[in-house]
């Protein structure tokens, strides 16, 4: 389209008045680019119409400006609210991620603490069980000491000295009214390996077995009480004890 043809179409006037279709508007814009002199013409028309509108201007009510501004603020606020509904704000994402990391750290810390606590608990539990055992043992020993004490303090308790070679001495604490008696090994030497001491009661010239002695030269050793025993004799026997005493191995002996 030539410049002259374009002017004849009156598209410029229609464009200025907003009467052109989108296609026509595009054509006008292209023509204005191709023929810059047309632009001046078009602008002239636009300015003319602006003046025409100004000549017919009517001042709106004074309150309208405020309404316009607040309507725009309202719309902006609504759009912001709508946007916030659809997309999660950055700070929420960041704080959620931070919380997650924090939670992981805390979980690990808590799990670690729990494992530590369980370990300590197990140790304490073992120690407590051991302590209980110790207590029981002490209690037992206390009871033993108490019964030994009452046994020894009994006015009917007698001391029987069982003597052997080289001033070897074993003391028996004997009480006819009791079911048991005690031995204190004093300076009896420890039995050689593979051997054990065994104690015998002489009842009606018969050597009656009173059991093997668990060697301990510090403590009182409990032995049974034998009624009608004339003497107490300790022999060295093979490990586990014998049915009949080896008289050649008689170590100490004492008359009741």
């Amino acid at each position: 389209m030539t410049k002259e043809e374009f002017i004849k179409t009156g598209l410029c006037e229609q464009y200025v008045l907003g009467l052109t279709t989108p296609e026509e508007s595009k054509l006008v814009e292209e023509m204005l680019l191709t023929y810059p002199e047309l632009k001046g013409d078009c602008r002239g028309l636009e300015n003319c119409m602006e003046k025409y509108a100004r000549a017919h201007a009517i001042p709106p009510p004074a309150t309208l400006k405020k309404s316009v501004l607040s309507k725009i603020d309202e719309q902006d606020a609504m759009e912001r609210a709508a946007r916030n509904n659809y997309s999660i704000p950055k700070w929420v994402v960041i704080s959620a991620a931070a919380s997650l990391v924090g939670l992981l750290f805390f979980s690990f810390f808590a799990w670690n603490e729990k494992a530590n606590a369980e370990n300590k608990m197990a140790i304490l539990s073992t120690e407590f069980q051991q302590f209980q055992k110790d207590c029981e043992q002490v209690e037992n020993e206390k009871m033993i000491f108490a019964s030994q004490n009452s046994f020894l303090k009994d006015p009917n308790t007698t001391h029987i000295h069982l003597r052997g070679e080289d001033n070897t001495l074993v003391v028996a604490y004997w009480n006819e009214g009791k079911d048991n008696a005690y031995l204190k090994l004093e300076n009896l030497p420890a039995p050689p390996a593979g051997k054990t001491y065994q104690i015998w009661a002489d009842i009606n010239n018969e050597m009656v077995d009173m059991g093997v002695i668990n060697y301990d030269d510090k403590k009182m050793i409990s032995i049974p009480h034998m009624a009608n025993a004339a003497s107490l004799n300790i022999t060295l026997e093979k490990e586990g004890g014998s049915d009949h005493p080896d008289v050649s191995q008689l170590k100490v002996s004492g008359v009741i």
Partner: peptide
């Protein structure tokens, strides 16, 4: 917006 309003509102309102 306020500037456009002050400059053009009467013409547009007309």
């Amino acid at each position: 917006i306020a500037i456009i309003y002050d400059n053009y509102a009467p013409s547009l309102y007309g």
